[in-house]
Amino acid sequence: MKIAIASGKGGTGKTTLSTNLAAYLAEKQEVVLVDLDVEEPNSGLFIKAELLREEEKYKMIPQWNPDTCILCGNCQEVCNFHAVLKLGEQIMVFPELCHSCYACSELCPTNSLPMVPQKMGELKHFNSGTLSFIESRLEIGQEQAVPLIRQTNKYVEECFSEQVIKLFDSPPGTSCPVIEATKDADFIILVTEPTPFGLHDLTLAVETMRELKKNFGVVINRHGIGNDEVEKYCSAENIPLLARIPNDRQIAELYSRGELLYKKIPGVKEQLDLLIHHIEGLESAGER
């Protein structure tokens, strides 16, 4: 079972929910939590585990060889991202714009643009008993999160069997990195806050998940602030409201110290139970 935790708006509590849900589920079964917010991974602040493995991750970009190039300009014609430009007597490659599609390289008549690896980030694999934690971090200056998210997903796929519950802490927003982080999930939990801003971005996230034809539900975090428009929206749209995590000063205090909530706040544990109950219902429905 693969569950992605996403949101439209940033800062709604994706990581809070991901880490608490992962640790709580791991009390009974094997779980892997994957931080796919590679531009700013922070699940690791809440997970105490031992580092098992560290890998450098690379993307392939073309490198110009001026000695064999005949300056035909074919490379810039075929590049959809303007990552290769012919400027007078030279070819310039912009690695940040390159999507590693190989078109310029493969279609170069003189093989003057061989693909070479460029480091884009690092993956770390941690473990603590039944809880595994994978975190990928993009290098400073790298602009594309998608290739690293894709490679991280591949790593998880290769390392963990079908039986292991997989939780994916996704990036905020609704753009390409979010699509990449959620497109293979069996279920998406959209975390929002009950404010006009929260509702606005939730509707964008809902549209995205519907476009992807995903099964999803909503968790309201900081329940008690704002208004009840999110609840009204969910009921009007027939979106299951899975849990309501209360707005509570003690939660903020624990969070600020990097501690998990459910062990100390019974209200949070109750809400996680509701969420897990829903997920287990999906699982057994899937098995039938």
């Binding site: 991202f81 303007h82 400027l87 007078g88 912009f94 714009l97």
Partner: peptide, 15 residues
């Protein structure tokens, strides 16, 4: 209509 690389493309025109 260009999603990526508008800057370098316009710069190339100036070049």
């Amino acid at each position: 209509n260009v999603a990526h690389g508008a800057g370098p493309q316009t710069a190339q025109k100036l070049f």
